[in-house]
Design a protein around this nucleic acid. Structure first.
Length: 433
DNA sequence: TCTGGGGTCCTAGGACCC
DNA sequence: TCTGGGGTCCTAGGACCC
């Protein structure tokens, strides 16, 4: 049984988080955007998902619908971009590759964040090590990052958040053996703690548990009964006891979904079929990429819940397949069948999607298969050829005819920047006069 | 007019088995 | 008159994350 201080130094994590990542990516290829207010929008140009510091200062909040801040954007000449995931994904890979030159103990947590294990770094060297990481990533990629260092992942998240709001910290905040931890945690609203969201946050605040520090000191049995073991884990993490370990191995996904809002309302089933076929292709691609097959297919459609004057309808249906597969035409056939079961005429639909679940490894082929192994092999070869052609010649070079040509339901992306790093036709152009 | 997409984990409850 | 209970599997739904 160790004392509290021994536990504190038992493990050390850092969270490396890219600052305003999508905005920073846009700025790397368009330096005129530096020091200017910039926002990046979600798919369909729906909501704001990234903001430069200047845009934040104008009062543009995270995840706010574009149309609600359009007046601020226009009045202040804020530069607006649609999400360019080809660019951001590629930049993310460069950031992570730089990080992995420092240590193999990296958990890529999201497109713009990674946890690393620093247990082998001497406590006195932590700050300099983190500064070296910042410098290297900025030099190699042009992306600024913040680093929070702490004995648990939850505390590293909090340290990182402080870095972003305090320029005096120069991008690094180390709270290993931090003397004023209680005071620090008192400044963190409870709903901002990693793992506690809006719903639990409201419940906790109604019981006068207002800050991370209050939560840390709340009764374990209360937390367990209201929030289960996840809540309990968060309490330990705030106490400095590591309860969430580094997750380094990239496990295959357990569900794969592809869904999207349409660029406009869609009523006709044939248009929804087109969209669903498109999503089906994308989901099956992802399925084969991780060498899985699915046992179940779910399809859902829904109307715009914000448009109260419209007749509302949201429904999903699931089918269990006779045998696991990742053969696109087969899955598409079931998807179309499910859609026909839930679709209602005369309704304005805004979104549809497909979810592949009960995933299993691709091989070996099921012994109780209805198909001969020769047919299995043939299907596998067809899908391999399809994936190969699409990866070389571009997405959707080969696609299901049912996904349509015009795709008038397709999402809006009115402010897209060029795919500078991943498409030969959209390279950065430099004028030298 | 316009409100993202893609995931994870946990829990509760029903069906079923012994 | 007495009318089990524990384990497991599945699904739906709710919470969270970025």
């Amino acid at each position: 049984m160790g004392t509290q201080s021994e536990i504190l130094t038992n493990k050390i994590f850092a969270l490396v988080d890219c600052n305003n990542f999508y905005v920073s990516c846009e700025r790397v290829f368009n330096p005129k955007l530096n020091n200017q207010p910039v926002v990046v929008l979600s798919n369909n140009d729906g909501v704001v998902v990234a903001r430069s510091q200047e845009a934040k200062s104008l009062g543009i909040t995270m995840a706010i619908p574009y149309f609600k801040v359009k007046h601020i954007i226009e009045a202040n000449n804020v530069k607006v971009f649609s999400s360019n995931y080809a660019l951001y994904g590629d930049m993310s890979e460069r950031v992570m590759n730089t990080l992995m030159k420092f240590t193999p103990d990296v958990e890529i947590y999201s497109i713009d964040e990674a946890f690393i294990n620093l247990k082998n770094i001497a406590v006195n060297d932590l700050d300099n090590y983190a500064k070296d990481i910042r410098t290297a990533i900025l030099k190699n990629t042009g992306i600024p990052v913040s680093v929070g260092i702490a004995p648990t992942k939850t505390l590293a998240k909090i340290a990182n958040e402080f870095v972003k709001h305090n320029s005096k910290l120069n991008g690094v905040f180390n709270i290993v053996n931090f003397p004023k931890m209680d005071k620090l945690l008192s400044q963190v609203p409870v709903h901002e703690v990693w793992g506690i969201g809006g719903a639990f946050g409201r419940m906790l605040m109604s019981r006068k548990i207002l800050s991370a520090n209050d939560f840390k000191n709340a009764s374990s049995s209360f937390i367990k009964s209201k929030m289960g073991i996840i809540g309990l884990r968060t309490k330990y993490e705030l106490q400095g006891v590591s309860a969430i370990d580094l997750d380094e191995v990239l496990e295959p996904k357990k569900d794969i979904m592809s869904s999207r809002s349409f660029g406009r309302y869609v009523t006709d089933i044939s248009e929804i079929e087109e969209a669903l076929s498109q999503y089906c292709m994308r989901a099956c691609e992802k399925l084969r990429l991780q060498k899985s097959c699915c046992n179940s297919v779910t399809v859902f459609i829904q109307t715009n819940i914000h448009k109260l004057s419209d007749m509302q309808h949201a429904e999903s249906k699931t089918v269990t397949l006779p045998e696991p597969t990742n053969f696109t035409p087969e899955i598409n056939k079931y998807a179309m069948y499910l859609l026909s079961k839930i679709y209602k005429k005369g309704i304005n639909y805004i979104k549809a999607g497909i979810l592949l679940t009960n995933l299993v490894p691709e091989s070996p082929v099921q012994l109780n298969s209805f198909m001969s192994s020769r047919d299995h092999a043939k299907r596998a070869r067809i899908m391999k050829a399809l994936d190969c052609i699409n990866s070389v010649w571009g997405r959707d070079t080969l696609k299901l005819a049912s996904s349509g040509i015009k795709q008038q339901w397709a999402m809006k992306r009115q402010h897209i920047s060029p795919r500078c790093t991943t498409n030969w036709n959209e390279l950065l152009i430099i004028n030298i006069n």
